[in-house]
Amino acid sequence: MSEQKAVASKPKASRQAFGEVLAELGAKHTDLVVLDADLAKSTKSELFAKKFPERFFEMGIAEQNMVGVAAGLGLAGKNAFCCSFACFVAGRFETIKISVAYSGGNVKIVGTHAGVGIGPDGYSQMGLEDLALMRTLPTMEVYQPADELETRQIVEYLATHRGAAYLRLTRQDLTPVHGPGYEFAPGKLDVLAEGKDVAILATGGPTFHAVDARKQLAAAGIDAAVINVPSIKPFDREGIAAWAKKVPLFVSVEDHNVLGGMGGAVAEVLAEVAGARARLHRHGIPDVFGESGEPEDLYRKFKLDADGIVAVVRERLGR
């Protein structure tokens, strides 16, 4: 993981970064197998399929069987990456619960096109509950990268990790928030910028918007920390507890229902921290259905872009 990659500083979708790095890792990790359910062109697992056709399994539009077959491959000693839209793969929750998590299968569930960021396809294609579901499974690790470099490093980690994990990726491009020296660490917060008035905790798609929001807030005299949360489970309880004593306000930002996602994880820890100063505002999709629209219009509507995050923070601070 310390191996530094030359990463272009231009925006890239985390699904694209995932597909590229998985195809690279296939040569070194001969136990890697990949399954998809008729969305390989979209999840970018096709990049692996082209290089390693004997280790790629097209399972058709039958996600629960795909999940179970991945579990069997994992039990037979493989490391199975099982890909679809976050919405469809997480929808096979009970198969993930029993065949994957409970069986101790070596399976990586990959959910792409997460959140309202999928855009015009509308709510039926939007994974907005997947973090809440996956967090409840014992042994299941849950990760959501914020840019290309972090995606690469998380996929590299998962390529050698034994056990079950969920990886949540975007359809839309993500502007890099990390320099080339970044090192992802499972179970740790990633502090992108220090600040004392508020800590914005962001994960996945909206993270780079939170970085932009910090600049606007600074212009308004508000000193905001921006903390990227790539590791939803294991979750950095100590990190949250420490920040809860440093700042008066947390604003969690995610393209997911506010119930049970990253903000929910923060709330659970915060409620148990003795001497916490911070109050929490959970910002995300406010327990409503998504809808069709261009991704940027949806991010504007749900206040997940920089202007929206600024507005939410200022309203909450009353400044």
Binding site: V33, E54, R55, F57, Q64, N65, V67, G68, V69, A70, A71, G72, L73, G74, L75, A76, G77, K78, A80, E94, T95, K97, I98, S99, Y102, S103
Partner: peptide
């Protein structure tokens, strides 16, 4: 015990995965 089962309908998928794994090996 090769797989967690009891939620009915899941075992054959797991067996398919094991059979694919055995073939790869």
């Amino acid at each position: 015990i090769e797989a967690c089962t009891g939620s009915l309908g899941q075992g054959l998928s797991v067996a398919v995965g094991m059979a694919l794994g055995a073939r790869l090996d």
